[in-house]
């Protein structure tokens, strides 16, 4: 497809989505907010983890940092500054994590991110209990669902645009080389650690912003609420379903899965995590490259399709 046509179509879709909430009730807007939030989360996750194949389990650590920063600062600072502070904190944490793990093999990164959310949750809880003496905070910001939705929609557009641009830039090429074979990439003159670190920091900052923007919806915020590990899990499964290496993959995975989970948690709250887990295992087994790659494979059966697993080679 022609790039210009694609851009016009995307802009039209964006405009349509922007006016959509005007015709919806509060529940509909709530759904749109949740859905857009996960579209951004999954896209931002895939921005780093797709090309590098480093599985990040820390989504909710950054999401929670964003949300909690808003809870702490919303009374004292103007809103744009609060968002900026959240970004700065998220970026700092990402740099610490990245600098200490990304120069090592992928497994160290996975292990570190696995416990990161729990670590930050405990630190925040400890700080609140011992230093400030207030566990749990209220957020009073004059935002309705529709305002949050518009902010998230803008962030979604920015994220996708950024992903598209990175994909075409030297950085994107470098990262794909890293994903294919880290040693070869390093020998080709790519500063592997720096490329990984930059992208991880960027992805983490976007995730932090999602948390910050969504925070006013809760009104009451507590570490246990904003550091809920299910968020990391859902983000991961959505990006995988759509295909983490495609621009539109994570978004396409996020929309149906968000609606499905919404329905599941309303109708089968007790069996939610079993169904979720089975679903996840199924995706790893049957759609290791995501739905988009599967559809492409089906559309072009004549061309000898390369076996799916070969494409996954070279993960660190």
């Amino acid at each position: 497809m022609n790039t210009t046509v694609a851009f016009i179509l995307a802009a039209a879709a964006l405009a349509g989505l922007a006016i959509a909430p005007l015709f919806l009730n509060a529940y509909g807007i709530g759904l749109l907010v949740g859905m857009t939030g996960y579209v951004v989360l999954a896209s931002a996750w895939a921005m780093f983890s797709g090309p590098t194949r480093y599985v990040s389990l820390a989504t909710v650590a950054f999401f929670g940092i964003g949300a909690y920063t808003v809870a702490v600062l919303s009374e004292t600072l103007p809103y744009p500054l609060v968002l900026l502070c959240a970004c700065a904190i998220g970026l700092t944490v990402a740099l610490i994590v990245g600098l200490s793990t990304l120069r090592l093999a992928g497994i160290y990164f996975v292990i570190f991110t696995f416990g990161l959310a729990e670590l930050i949750r405990q630190l925040v809880t400890w700080y609140e209990v011992n230093v400030t003496g207030t566990l749990g905070r209220y957020i009073f910001l004059p935002f309705e669902g529709i305002h949050i939705y518009w902010q998230l929609l803008a962030l979604a557009a920015a994220t996708l645009l950024l992903s598209w641009w990175i994909n075409r830039s030297r950085l994107g090429l470098a990262l794909r080389a890293v994903g294919d074979d880290e040693v070869v990439a390093a020998h080709a003159g790519i500063n592997v650690s720096r490329a990984k670190l930059m992208l991880f920091a960027l992805s983490a900052t976007i995730i932090t912003l999602v948390g910050a923007i969504q925070a006013p919806r809760w009104v009451y915020v507590e570490p246990a609420i904003v550091f809920n590990p299910t968020i990391s899990f859902l983000t991961l499964i959505m990006a995988l379903l759509g295909g983490a290496t495609r621009l539109w993959g994570p978004a396409l995975g996020a929309i149906p899965l968000f609606l499905l989970f919404e329905w599941l948690s309303a109708n089968f709250p007790n069996y939610f995590s079993i169904i979720l887990g089975v679903f996840f295992i199924g995706i790893v087994f049957f759609l290791p490259q995501g739905v988009l790659a599967k559809i492409e494979g089906l559309r072009r059966p004549a061309r000898k399709a390369p076996p799916e697993n070969k494409e996954r080679s070279g993960a660190a």
Partner: peptide, 29 residues
């Protein structure tokens, strides 16, 4: 199906992450 150790590492992390939620869900029920 894994072509090398790295791919298996990623796959095993993902699949056992799913298994984690299945076992936890069964215990919760």
């Amino acid at each position: 199906r894994a072509p090398n150790a790295g791919a298996l590492e990623v796959d095993s992390i993902l699949v056992t992450f799913g298994l984690l939620f299945v076992i936890q869900g069964v215990l919760l029920v």
